[in-house]
Nucleic acid binder design. Structure first.
Lengths: 297, 297
DNA sequence: TCAAAAGTGTTATCCTTACACCCATGC
DNA sequence: GCATGGGTGTAAGGATAACACTTTTGA
């Protein structure tokens, strides 16, 4: 890191150097890459649940050594944010088809104990059947964790001029080997027209930096998006049964749905195929595909 | 700017200086501050329209000298993004009660012709009765412009694997002295699971940088937000008539609403007062206030 | 008197919700 | 046979959209 010699370009740089201008934050891109995969099958009849998976990398150095973090890296001067995001994706996986959306930009001063870092977070959704995670070539080990977000407590008090709300979430990221957890408390306050949201991590086991916050934010965004867009299909394989689709909705929304109503609601977004599942221990079910042009019917 | 002397802290800095690490983007915060104000009254009976106003500052230096830009500035190392946003607001106005929300982070490489800049944009909404814009003390002149966004053309073609969509917007920012316009074209493409949005400014008269894009983005976000939240009330004075409220909805949504239906829909979000308007050239109308606790009924 | 807006009522239609029922499979 | 899921029907309640009508004011 230290450098005693002075190169020509460095000389050039020093000529126009103004110390004040470098007292500025650096920018990283952090990636929230989600997929869906079947959980374990309890018996020959019962269908497996669909689990939501998030990719994390193990940190090799301090701070937060041996804890798990979101994949990410610095944005270079010659690449746009989207390019940096795609670069991150390519570094970790072989993704070709991916849904990518900018989530939020995190800018608290003490986010990173070393220096001032501003992180632009991106949500990426992929179909697990089209995906393999690269391994080995990067020093960091990357692994999938099953993500669950449960609301523990919710409290809302109305005040003279607004309200004070507190939601307590339990975030769990589980693996064959590892279980990471975090208690995340979201404080929402409204005084007149001023609305403030403050998110605290009251306890984080094994999740580096403020990444538990970011993951909770992403999961909440995903919950919202799923109910008013068709993003869910970016998580599905080319063909799927309606119950599989329903189960993905259910894990993301963390809520049971009524079959008949669910099917009516999504019927205009899917297309029948002539294929059926077999040997499932129960009546075969028809396979469907996403109907690209559902929005104009 | 140039500096020939070398201070102690600078010496210290140079010891650990690594030129590569400074090839990094700088971060600014850009502010989209909106209010609502009554337009001109056509005759003694007719109610004035409600106009959506945006605050812009005139650029004093190159690039884009004499063009109008969003108020904004660099994020310092010792302040969070929100702090930087509030600082910007305070620099331009006397706002106390303001709704503030992070919009989007803009990161194209050539956004600023001078250096690489990443801008985090914030949406701010204020009630104009509580607001005055500071003037004089800053070199830049700040002024309010009436913002209108009209869809000129819309085209959507379905393809094998997705669609190609093109929307053409005409953005107009009007003042007593100045009229700024921009043609903004939003290309939305979907190929399989990859959805891309590319926004181009085909013609920008008097609006600096890529700020026309950002303003269009903000107006679209405002349109969405208004239809599923209660943000609209952050733009309203303490008391208002239902027709005033309806007119604000109509200018933001750029769409006429049916009175009876509108009133039913928002009835649970407002509270009657005992006051009425007078001397309006027609039947007096009751004044209402925002009902803070509408969400739990 | 009358233009302009304030304010309310009616109806058809659609969407949501909850629940009930029958069907098909493979061990 | 039966557990498990596949698949459909019905009815109540609520929200939405379009339209029509009455009331009140001030120049």
């Amino acid at each position: 890191m230290m450098n005693n010699e002075t190169s020509a370009s460095e000389q050039q740089f020093l000529k126009t150097y103004n110390p004040e201008q470098y007292k500025r934050p650096s920018v990283t891109v952090d990636m929230l890459l989600f997929t869906v995969a079947r959980g374990e099958q309890k018996n020959y009849r019962k269908l497996p649940d669909m689990e939501l998976k998030l990719l994390l990398v193990k940190r090799g150095k301090h701070p937060f050594k041996n804890q798990w973090a979101l994949p990410g890296g610095f944005v270079q001067v010659d690449e746009s944010l989207e390019e940096a995001a795609y670069r991150e994706l390519k570094e970790e996986t072989n993704v070709e088809e991916v849904y990518l959306e900018q989530l939020y930009t995190w800018g608290a001063v003490e986010r990173d104990p070393r220096t001032r870092i501003i992180s632009v977070s991106y949500l990426a959704l992929v179909d697990h059947t089209k995906l393999t995670v690269k391994s080995g070539d990067d020093a960091a080990e990357a692994e999938w964790f099953t993500a669950t977000l449960k609301i523990q407590e919710e409290e809302k008090k109305m005040t003279e001029e607004g309200f004070v709300q507190r939601e307590t979430f339990l975030l769990t990221l589980r693996n064959d080997e590892t279980t990471l957890t975090a208690d995340v408390i979201v404080h929402r306050t409204k005084i007149g027209k001023v609305e403030t949201t403050k998110t605290d991590i009251s306890l984080s086991k094994g999740i580096a930096f403020d990444h538990a916050k970011i993951i909770v934010y992403a999961l909440e965004r995903l919950r919202n998006k799923v109910s008013y867009t068709d993003v869910i299909f970016t998580l599905m394989p080319d063909t799927f049964t309606l119950t599989e689709l329903q189960k993905v909705y259910e894990t993301i929304l963390d809520k049971k749905l009524i079959k008949a109503n669910f099917r009516r609601k999504i019927s205009h977004m899917v297309l029948e195929t002539n294929e059926f599942t077999t040997e499932a221990g129960h009546r075969p079910s028809q396979l469907f595909t996403f109907k690209n042009d559902w929005s104009d019917d």
